[in-house]
Design a binder for these strands. Structure first.
Lengths: 240, 240
DNA sequence: GAGTGGTCTAGACCACGGT
DNA sequence: CCGTGGTCTAGACCACTCC
């Protein structure tokens, strides 16, 4: 599992931090000591520390050292990273949950002016337009409204849409999903939402808009995921 | 403005990407050529490219090169504004807008069991509990519910709360805000929300929960920002 | 002034992509 | 096979923190 020098240093340090080895001083050992301990270069040690900082576990201060950030059971949930490409996390992270997909509609259409404005796909290209409802523990919690560029992602069928499009893209087409950009909003519920989601008394939805790129830099997907309130959470980390 | 070697390379490359200089090939020049052009080391060039990748402008492929990600006017809003610590972004970043703060309540209280569970502050410590409503262009759009550790951030007054607590923390107390962790949710509206926000027909709010740390690693703040639907947006970037 | 992390250089070898 | 980015080393100097 541990592939690189820096990765092994990173894993060791992370384990110690979570175990509380360094908690008393609220500091990591200085770089030179870590270089000596792991018998490696400064590059590898610094890269490991950088990864810990990316996760929000430590913070480097020039001239002082690498500081540990306080963490309590309550703040653990902030440390969940949204590194998973395909999915959304529930607010109960470790709980196992039932996950079902129902296909609402499946079409192949040509992008017109309005859809181009929304999705950033070029006018005239063919796209798959797919609506699916995701039920978590029997509750209709999310509706995915997907548009896939049919030239870049050909051959999607209703059957594939009912299982996993991302599996099809990665495993069958062998296309690499390089980058996903997301926008999160809260929107007033539309008819498509009230019709398909277990909104109860609520009349709003969360809206996660995703655009995904392959490793040639082409945008192959535009997706809106509308989800019901009180169920899902997203994390962010901001560093100075 | 340009301080370091890598920063100057980064700014130059970013400008060229946005101007379209490299768009035809959808590639950046290879590292060796950039090293030659900028007469610098590989370290500086790679650090600049890494920063471009962090912003979602490019993607590096081992063995192939550095690929440009497609960007259109529509997808500009997906590109990240990093580093804003003090506020919330509107969905129209460049638009000037009116911004007003009204103080709803101001108290100094002791953390009890329930509040400790919520905020991750230790039971028994004194905190400032502050509620403020932010109006954007005359619309009551956001209510901030702040808890500041009074031992770490002493001397907050109602007057300071009416202007800017973050200015007070950074400029007067000279405390560095090192890291902010955020959780984004959609919640059903509470009485505090319906009473203070221009929700209209909507009965839900966005909830941005922030916990902030100083450069000694101590959590000094827990804040919930409840905001009305259809006004604000947050960006995320996920890389493989 | 001593100690620490941040920036930078010059070089080496490896892993992967495409021909 | 060649060209490319990824990892890694050894070393230098600078900027900042703290005593």
């Amino acid at each position: 599992m541990t592939k690189n020098t820096f990765d092994s240093i990173y894993k060791t340090l992370k384990e110690r931090i979570l175990k509380g080895t360094y908690s008393i001083k609220m500091r990591l050992p200085i770089e030179d000591d870590l270089i000596t301990e792991f018998d490696s270069s400064r590059y590898a040690v610094r890269k490991a520390i950088k990864q810990l900082a990316n996760e929000g576990l430590v913070y480097s201060v020039k001239g002082r050292g690498v500081v540990l950030l306080e963490h309590t059971p309550q703040t653990q949930q902030f440390n969940l990273n949204l590194g998973e490409l395909s999915g959304i996390h529930t607010s109960e992270p470790d709980q196992t949950f039932d996950y079902q997909t129902a296909l609402v509609s499946f079409d192949q259409i040509i992008v017109d002016q309005a859809l181009s404005q929304q999705t950033a796909f070029e006018v005239g290209i063919p796209v798959y337009a797919i609506k699916r409802v995701r039920s978590i523990n029997g509750t209709r919690a999310v509706i995915d409204i997907n548009y896939f560029n049919a030239q870049l992602i050909p051959g999607i069928t209703p059957k594939i849409a009912k299982t996993s499009i991302y599996d099809y893209i990665q495993k069958t087409l062998k296309i690499k999903i390089a980058v996903v950009k997301r926008l999160l909003r809260v929107d007033s519920a539309l008819p498509v939402d009230t019709d398909n989601l277990a909104l109860g008394q609520n009349n709003c939805v969360g809206n996660m808009i995703s655009i995904a790129f392959n490793d040639s830099g082409r945008q192959f997907e535009y997706t809106e995921s509308h989800f019901i309130p009180n169920e899902l959470a997203f994390t962010q980390l901001i560093r100075n």
